[in-house]
Amino acid sequence: MSDNMRMKLKIWRQKGPNSPGAFRDYELDNVSSHMSFLEMLDVLNEKLIKEGKEDPVEYDYDCREGICGTCGVVVDGVAHGPVRRTATCQLHMRTFRDGDTITIEPWRSEAFPVIKDLVVDRSAFDRIIQAGGYVGVNTGCAQDANSIPIGKEEADKSFFAAACIGCGACVAACPNASASLFVAAKISQYAHLPQGKPEATRRALRMIEQMDAEGFGNCSNHAECEAVCPKGISIDNIAVMRREYLKAALKTGSATI
């Protein structure tokens, strides 16, 4: 444990969606190993504001406990950094050593335009969910909760898929910038449950169609997404998604709806 590490940072700076960006170098002293990665950036920003020579670095965050999915940067080429199953906000400086150079850049994907510096726009994910990532049940028309028995094994599989936090690291890590893991997690959550079955066909076709329309690439089984996912969502879910998609296409005789 050390309380006075010196870090060299190479950070992507970009004024807006249509401006060119570039890496800039910074040095930061007195970094404590107990700090989180984002707290280290907070300290850098306080210093930049005090110096007044350039604007602070913009990065997005909210809960800082790894569940809201707001934060996320590429650290030394890896989405969310070097620790497995860990979102950027839960990454701590004890992972790094005194004198290390750390390269920090935003998620790179055409479907996630940069807003500023390290902040990207992930509204494409909302539009995919909008295309069927739910069970169509109006408020007030539900039956008693225990009238739908669901075995623990299937309920657990559904939960593990539903644990996706929608951070977009899967897209950032994929050589094709595919959103397959994100979409599969939602489709698979419902594929393991009796709820929402009547609209399973429509859901699979529409969500995948929307994923393509947003400009995400296809999955070619690199599994980089699974490796960086902070919630450890398994690519088995992508197999489930393909099954759901194939079933839907065969049933309707079409790949679109």
Binding site: Y134, V135, V137, T139, G140, C141, A142, Q143, D144, A145, N146, I148, P149, I150, G151, K152, A155, D156, S158, F159, A162, Q189, Y190, L193, Q195, G196
Partner: peptide, 22 residues
């Protein structure tokens, strides 16, 4: 009471027992 019914109908994957009950 109705909240739990509503959430289960939406496909919220609550923890369950082996027999399938919540």
């Amino acid at each position: 009471v109705s909240i739990i019914d509503q959430c289960v109908a939406q496909g919220v994957p609550f923890a369950r027992e082996y027999g399938g009950m919540l």
